[in-house]
């Protein structure tokens, strides 16, 4: 179907429309909102590659987000490395951490909930270490010096940040679509659906999973690095806290796990919903989040295959299935 497996022309079209948004004279409130949606979408896209396509359900993508963010920040603040190089290094190191965690877990044969829990534990270990280690600034956190200049990856205009985030999300959209069409994508889905059968058919399961988690981690690390450059401040709870692991998987699953557009759609939907409930809530704190929780449950009840699934009823081809 069109939305489940969008043609490149559609992807380019969507990206072009989105790229045009700042030109409509949107206020910074909207741009700031959209930027953050894109960061979450990017983190979700990373999660989606391993979790949605490959069925490797991670609760610990905060590990990659945090490594990307801290690497970018530390290289600039402590070693005076150029921000753009730091950005690249953050992605590379995030990917490496993904590879290491993947190697340990996949070699031990961890799947389903077990894989989920071990990734959660890795993220927590990193959080505790980041909170204590001097190089991360410990509990005081790390502040990237405010020095607005394109060479520093800091921009006066919110629109530029928006475009950079959009470029990254767009690149992953296209990469994702290409993977779907290549053998690698087919292997991933095969592993998700039935790992033993995939192995019997000659798929090098470990290698495919490791490639997937490394790429997945790289994408989520990019989201972390982008966060660092935008907010210019990190502490252990921000970088490695469970919130981002949850945001990443929530965006992907609500949008439609294992689909190209799922994470972007999911991130927009969840954060749009968050803003709307905020507007609708009264004086009593918490009411807006109660509504948010209820709507989240309703969305799952009525769109069990993600929002994309609503538009592709009957198309069982790439449907994510349970894996316990």
């Amino acid at each position: 179907m069109l939305l489940r497996h969008p043609p490149f022309a559609l992807l380019i079209g969507i990206l072009t429309v989105l790229a045009g948004l700042p030109l409509l004279g949107l206020p910074n409130t909207a741009l700031n909102f959209l930027f953050f949606v894109l960061v979450i979408a990017l983190a979700g896209q990373g999660w989606n590659l391993a979790g949605g396509y490959g069925g490797q359900f991670s609760f610990g993508h905060a590990a990659f987000f945090g490594v990307g963010a801290y690497t970018t920040a530390i290289l600039q603040v402590r070693y005076g490395v150029n921000a753009w190089l730091g950005f690249g290094a953050g992605i590379a190191l995030g990917s490496f951490v993904g590879f290491v965690i993947g190697s340990l877990s996949f070699r031990a044969g961890l799947r389903g909930s077990y894989f989920a829990l071990v990734t959660l534990a890795f993220a927590e270990v990193l959080r505790i270490l980041a909170n204590a280690a001097p190089i991360t600034g410990g509990a005081a956190g790390i502040l990237i010096k405010l020095d607005v200049a394109p060479a520093n990856f800091q921009f006066a205009s919110r629109a530029v940040f928006f475009w950079i985030a959009l470029a990254l999300v767009g690149a992953v959209l296209i990469l994702n679509r290409m993977i779907e069409q290549r053998r690698f994508g087919a292997y991933l889905v095969a592993i998700r659906e039935n790992e033993a059968a995939a192995r019997a058919l000659g798929v090098n399961v470990l290698a495919v999973k490791l490639q997937a988690i490394s790429l997945s981690a790289a994408i989520t690390a990019a989201a972390g690095a982008l966060y660092a450059q935008y907010f210019l401040y990190l502490d252990a709870a921000i970088a490695f806290g469970p919130w981002i692991s949850v945001e990443a998987l929530l965006a992907a699953i609500i949008g439609g796990a294992g689909t190209v557009l799922g994470p972007l759609l999911g991130a927009g939907l969840l954060h749009g919903l968050g803003e709307i409930t905020k507007l609708a809530a009264g004086r009593v704190p918490g009411i807006d989040l109660v509504v948010y929780g209820i709507v989240l449950i309703l969305v799952v009840a009525f769109a069990p295959r993600g929002v994309i699934g609503l538009f592709t009823k009957g198309d069982k081809g790439g449907e994510p299935t349970s894996h316990g």
Binding site: L26, P27, T29, A30, F33, L34, G268, L269, L270, H271, G272, L273, E275, I276, T277, L279, A280, V291, I294, V295, L298, V299, F302, A303, V307, L310
Partner: peptide, 26 residues
Amino acid sequence: KTPILSGDADRRTILKGALAGAAIIA
């Protein structure tokens, strides 16, 4: 009063609501 909570909250309302979110908060 929240439109998305009213009885006939269908999926499209939710979706549209979210996409329109940016415009509303703006």
